[in-house]
Design a protein around this nucleic acid. Structure first.
Lengths: 173, 173
DNA sequence: TATTGTTATACTCTATAACTATA
DNA sequence: TATAGTTATAGAGTATAACAATA
């Protein structure tokens, strides 16, 4: 399948929103609103649901650039860290080396990055964005920044900042 | 592969934590700390990283119960909503019907749930937890609640509550 | 005609083992 | 002996198409 047909996976039936307290156990069948209150107290559940809902929008908006979430992260990391190695990307993004190979190969084939000889380690390669890669990454970054506003429209600017701060504390602990 | 070997997927190299501002572009190779500052401003990135880090712990702790995250959500939803249908679960958890079939079948085969005739719709089935299912779900729920404390140990109780609240606002919008 | 549950299937994502070249 | 990049491959996770039974 071609790289452009990336975002055909959108499907966003909203979650049940009620925290119903009423027990409907008198009959053998639950007929009213669902009780999802307990699941909604769980950080793993909420973080996963939020991530998936943001990523769904991301997939749509990034489809013109042919970048999926991890592709975007990799390209952005290379743009912001010229000469970075594959191994450094793997550590920073928690990707396994075999799974990065294809992405790097694809970005290279598209002419977005270059692999140069590493100056001090002949096993490694220094990764750099090409001129075209820099242009694409800048456009994609602008799109991502705009998207940030859209997916958090239920939040104030302060709330969004707080949310990002708390999320980082969770995964950086 | 058996259902008990679920949590063999743990690998947690911590993310780079520095928000370095210094541009190291003078040489062709980046040697110092990586600059991940921009990615760490993005809600999708942070939510995904946080979700994955919580889920990694979840997989470990739930391995004794043979429950992966979605299995746990499904079993919990049935326990809290006796008589719920597959279709209702799909809507509540944003799962596609074909992907739920195997989970329901597995929970049924393990004797954790029962499928009864739906009282008003002969196409549907009312799902109920068995006595064993109720016991397992209660233990798993206790484990999940305990886990909540552990994965959020970098946060105060207030911060955790705020975080969950803001995450729900994101995916319930 | 639409919906529930289901089968078959394909694609993507994520993991391990093992290799080579270099350190 | 250990590490960087790679290949091959296996297993989850997630998607679509299409069907029978029922609404």
């Amino acid at each position: 399948m071609s790289e452009t047909s990336v975002a055909n996976t959108l499907r966003r039936p909203r979650a049940a929103r009620q925290h119903s307290e009423a027990a409907a156990e008198s009959t053998s069948t639950h007929v009213g609103e669902l009780d999802t209150a307990y699941l909604e107290t769980l950080l793993g559940y909420n973080a996963r649901r939020a991530a998936l809902s943001v990523i769904a929008v991301f997939l749509q908006r990034m489809e013109p650039y042919g970048l999926r979430p991890v592709d975007f992260s990799v390209l952005t990391l290379i743009a912001h860290n010229p000469g970075i190695t594959s191994r450094q990307i793997c550590t920073a993004l928690d990707i396994l080396p075999p799974n990065l190979v294809g992405m790097i190969k694809s970005l290279d084939k598209r002419g977005l990055i270059e692999r140069r000889a590493h100056p001090t380690d002949r096993r490694a390669q220094g990764l750099h964005v090409s001129a075209a890669g820099k242009r694409l990454q800048r456009e994609a970054e602008t799109t991502a920044t705009q998207l940030e506003q859209d997916v958090s429209k239920a939040l104030t600017a302060d709330e969004l900042q707080t949310l990002n701060h708390l999320l980082r504390k969770v995964y950086q602990s």
